[in-house]
Design a protein around this nucleic acid. Sequence first.
DNA 1: CTCGTTGCGTGAAACGTTTCATAATGTGAG
DNA 2: CTCACATTATGAAACGTTTCACGCAACGAG
Lengths: 343, 343
Amino acid sequence: MAANGRPGRSASVKDVAALAHVSLGTVSNVLNRPDRVSAATRERVERAMTALGFVRNESARQLRTGLSSTLAYVMLDAGNPFFTDVARGIETAAEQHDLTVVLCNSDNRADRERSHLAMLEERRFRGVLVTPVDPDSPLLEQIAGRGTPVVIVDRTRDDDRFCSVAVDDVLGGRTAVEHLVDRGHRRVAFLGGPDNIGQVRDRLQGARDAWAEAGLPPDDLTVLRTDSLDVASGREAAERLLGQPSSRRPTAAFCINDLVALGVLQQTMRAGVSVPDDLALVGYDDIAFAAAAAVPLSSVRQPRELLGARAAALALAESEDRDHRHQQLLFTPELVARASSLG
Amino acid sequence: MAANGRPGRSASVKDVAALAHVSLGTVSNVLNRPDRVSAATRERVERAMTALGFVRNESARQLRTGLSSTLAYVMLDAGNPFFTDVARGIETAAEQHDLTVVLCNSDNRADRERSHLAMLEERRFRGVLVTPVDPDSPLLEQIAGRGTPVVIVDRTRDDDRFCSVAVDDVLGGRTAVEHLVDRGHRRVAFLGGPDNIGQVRDRLQGARDAWAEAGLPPDDLTVLRTDSLDVASGREAAERLLGQPSSRRPTAAFCINDLVALGVLQQTMRAGVSVPDDLALVGYDDIAFAAAAAVPLSSVRQPRELLGARAAALALAESEDRDHRHQQLLFTPELVARASSLG
DNA sequence: CTCGTTGCGTGAAACGTTTCATAATGTGAG
DNA sequence: CTCACATTATGAAACGTTTCACGCAACGAG
């Protein structure tokens, strides 16, 4: 317990061995295969360890064994509760396998994503999970090429060079719009963008599929583009929406995610327009703030924690299996109907 | 560029040296002191490096040099936007010094905090920033004792054994209540808990100070305890508040943070009680969702990103200065008045 | 008494880097 | 032509672990 005050070099196995009058190898055995050591010496070594405040140097260990016991998740935006929930799922799964998880936030910036991936590659983690800003970054293949499992989270790629977990966004879009059509809406707006995000395209696709199958005129499903996926974009889009003459204005809006939907909700209430009577609203993700909104928000729920948990499991499996086959998991979203779309 | 397909051991300096027909040391010089190497050989070595897909092994480097270039932030709750904003501040500051940051989420659990700290100690990071679940954890002193700078973020400790950054919570509580008194409120509720959190005690203390200085009867500042600091607790506390006969009911509530305030707001609107006319509301933290609420929320803003940035700077300074004196930084909160407290 | 076995402990080698003292070569001054 | 000196490159040592092939006793069986 003697937390040696001097900031000098901290104790190594060598120091412990000297103090306990045993060899290096024995100390290592106490650490890694305690059963191969007699009770008496084990105890002596352990006493020496606490006396010196010995803490194993993970760099040396990893250098020698080539093994790491930590997983990394490079998240797209730590400020979006969706991703922190995914992270929670990863952590829970990792915990069950005695792995620790570190989080890296690329904050929607490709350069920061690059620097994180480069750092992770140099450190040879057990596995790298990533929701990429740039799904085509060569660094991803490079890391995988070095033997580190890479799992793509919440994004799809056309190839099968990585494991991935994602949610069926086409189906999610379809589900949302089917719900609105069921509730009797005949003029609906899709609020989302930018278009270069695959999920935006997929959800819109699903929305259009449902609309067409209901036999409704394509022009009555209007699309309002947003610049990004946050609350401010929602407010801004709502202004455009509410600017339309109420005779032609959509009676419902399907928003690309809950942040946008919350922005719309706020702007709508401010304008004295009633939700859901004058405008029904469906969001996407079902983050905790959705249920807690002024008018509880209907939303297409993604199994966020499950997504993370399965991603972690895939990385682990890949790191253990000698000959591993990549898997692409696709989960099913589920509509949670609340007051914002129920009359 | 030849991303060697074989998953076998990846290239080392030795391999590069062999391919470039130079010695180990020269490769290392190319990496670390390129000016000490002639242009011709440097280029030859660099070609060999890309040909082999060489990536420096950080474990070996760190083992040899004892230096690390990454900072860790152990955050209390990644789901609370307050902490992700602090993290953003850390990342921005770190980036300017070419350090990378990893985030660890203790998710309000002491055991997870312990396992993260243990992992960080074994990895000998450049610095450890932490908003502790348990500010008295012996692991903190242990890590610091080993020579790793430890900075306590958004918590205060009585001693000066660490650097710390925090915000003056007594002043914050005082500011909130002064504002409400100024607006004419004579019956006010404080919503917050549990009491074992220092910040809860401090903000309540400030609230009471302001109340007393205004010469108002102590009993008219009522305290409603909450079990935690989330939206659900806010809803629950609001129910208790609204259950009181309106003649005696407080006309304003000061909430321990914005999540609680959002819960109160939601429950209040649902009950048909008007904010701010029937109940004024002030939150704390000024997270992004506060301004975006159905009724924009007044809040006591903490300089979140600044907090993070200064914490990172302190860690860095401590890691560089030979003889370093710990500093305790205390920032000043600032009231942001919005519709929820303005008639 | 001998021999295989079992239980414990040993010490050297290896992981991939950086550093440092030293060697080899070229250059310009005297 | 020699000497001092700068410029480059070299190779061994070291960082702190883990592993592995061996010793060494003690022991029970034959």
